[in-house]
Every structure is written in structure tokens, then in C-alpha cells.
């Protein structure tokens, strides 16, 4: 129990240090670019493919139910709302926790084990600002963007699936998809993934950066990064959804 509280404390301090350091000069622009490319661009195929598949599957499932109630015209609406509100942000977050979280954890742990972090420090480069802050920043920036890719590829998957069932026109699908959407249930859920990104970046960096177990610490850091960031994302989601409802009461369905 004490260990758990200690752990929470040290992760929080780590996260706080990220925020403080990210506001302090020098800004590692090139490093951030590098990490955005790594975290964002390289995750695109995974996110788009998953979104597409999930969109297709979702439609196949909801279709049966909605047709039973004679509400087949609601399929695009349900699909879009589900994706934009929850599935897109959450699944993108979890996928990124898996792909990027483990990567960050392993890379930083390996750098720690092979003294690369010491190497950076010996060059008088603040390794925290150089390694951790850009990774967290990249996650914060990339995840909302990846979520959008997820949302729209999900919509596309849903459309194709629906097109083969009912030959719905693309324009009609899109117009129905957005018919019940308000800005607050597009913008807020998309931006909440920045918090997910922060969680992934901070938790994974924490496990990677602070390991001191040499080579076997690398695998452990990777695993822990994924487990803890996924868990925290889901927990944070609960709180964020409540916060969004609080901020935009008309969103509460």
C-alpha cells in the first residue's frame, strides 16, 4: 500500500516535472518533430486499419438491432456518435498505449541501461528535456490527430459496410452521421485524448527513464508502461467524460 502511494507520488512528480520543463527553455523542437513522426505518423497504419475494421464491425452489429426497431436510418448517426464520442478516442488511446507506450518504455530503459542517458547528461544536455519532454509532447499532439484518423476511418468503414447492405449514398450517410452531432461532442472528446497522450507519455517515460535494472529492466519497463498507461487511460476517461458532461450539460445523453 505504501509502495502504491509512493509510486503514485513519484509518477505525479514526474508528470509535474514534464509540465514545468516543457515550459522552460530550451525547447527541443527537433526532438519533438522526431517524436511526432515516430509516435504519430508511424502509428497511422495501425490506427487507420483498426478504425476501419472497427467501424465495419460496429455497423454490422448495430444494423441488426436498429433494423429490428425500424430505425435503420439511425445507423450512420449511431455509428458517428459512437466513434466520435467514445470509441475513437478510447481505442486510439489504448492502441497508442500499446504501440507507443511500450516503445517509449523500452527505448528509455535501454538508453538508461546502456548509459546513453548518462552520455547525454555528460554532454551537458538535460536528458529529461531531451528525451522525456519531447516524447510526452509528441503523444499529447499526436493522439488527438490520430483519434481523428480513427474517427473518420471508422466512419468510412461504417459507410462501406452500410453501403453493401443498403446502397446508401455517401452524402446521405455523411449528412445523417453528423445530423445529431454538436460541436461539443466532437471537439471535447477529441481533445480529451490529449490527456490520454499525456498519460501515455508520462507513464511510459517514467518506467523507462527511472529503471535501474540493466538489460532485464527493458522488458519490464515496456510491459509496465503498457499496463499502467492503458489502465490510467480508462480511469481518466471516466473522469474526463464526467468533466465534459459538467462543462457541456447538453452532451449528457
Amino acid at each position: 500500500m505504501i509502495e502504491l502511494i509512493e509510486f503514485i507520488g513519484s509518477v505525479s512528480r514526474f508528470g509535474f516535472r514534464v509540465i514545468v520543463d516543457s515550459l522552460r527553455r530550451p525547447f527541443e523542437g527537433a526532438q519533438i518533430m522526431r517524436q511526432v513522426a515516430e509516435v504519430g505518423y508511424r502509428s497511422l497504419p495501425l490506427v487507420i486499419a483498426s478504425g476501419f475494421a472497427l467501424g465495419t464491425v460496429m455497423t454490422l452489429h448495430t444494423r441488426n438491432t436498429l433494423v429490428t426497431f425500424g430505425a435503420s436510418s439511425m445507423i450512420p448517426t449511431v455509428q458517428a456518435l459512437a466513434f466520435f464520442l467514445e470509441i475513437g478516442p478510447l481505442v486510439a488511446g489504448l492502441l497508442l498505449a500499446g504501440r507507443v507506450g511500450s516503445g517509449i518504455g523500452a527505448v528509455l530503459a535501454n538508453m538508461r541501461a546502456t548509459e546513453q542517458i548518462d552520455g547525454i547528461e555528460s554532454l551537458s544536455i538535460d536528458s529529461f528535456k531531451f528525451l522525456v519532454v519531447p516524447r510526452v509532447a509528441a503523444c499529447v499532439v499526436a493522439l488527438p490527430l490520430l483519434t481523428l484518423f480513427m474517427d473518420f476511418s471508422g466512419l468510412l468503414g461504417g459507410f462501406l459496410s452500410e453501403f453493401f447492405s443498403s446502397h446508401i449514398a455517401f452524402h446521405l450517410y455523411i449528412s445523417r452521421a453528423f445530423s445529431n452531432m454538436s460541436w461539443s461532442n466532437f471537439i471535447a472528446p477529441t481533445l480529451k485524448t490529449a490527456v490520454f497522450g499525456f498519460i501515455i507519455g508520462v507513464v511510459s517515460s517514467f518506467f523507462g527513464y527511472t529503471t535501474n535494472e540493466g538489460a532485464q529492466g527493458v522488458g519490464k519497463a515496456a510491459t509496465r508502461s503498457v499496463v499502467f498507461s492503458s489502465l490510467l487511460i480508462i480511469l481518466a476517461d471516466v473522469i474526463l467524460i464526467k468533466l465534459i458532461f459538467f462543462a457541456f450539460p447538453e452532451n449528457a445523453l
Binding site: V107, N110, M111, T114, D118, I120
Partner: peptide
């Protein structure tokens, strides 16, 4: 003023 040659060289992998 100092240069450090690490045990495994600690070259930056990336």
C-alpha cells in the same frame, strides 16, 4: 572540459 568514453560507448541508437 571533459570527454567520457562509456563502457558500451553509449552511442545514441537513433
Amino acid at each position: 572540459k571533459m570527454g567520457f568514453l562509456f563502457q558500451d560507448a553509449a552511442l545514441f541508437d537513433s
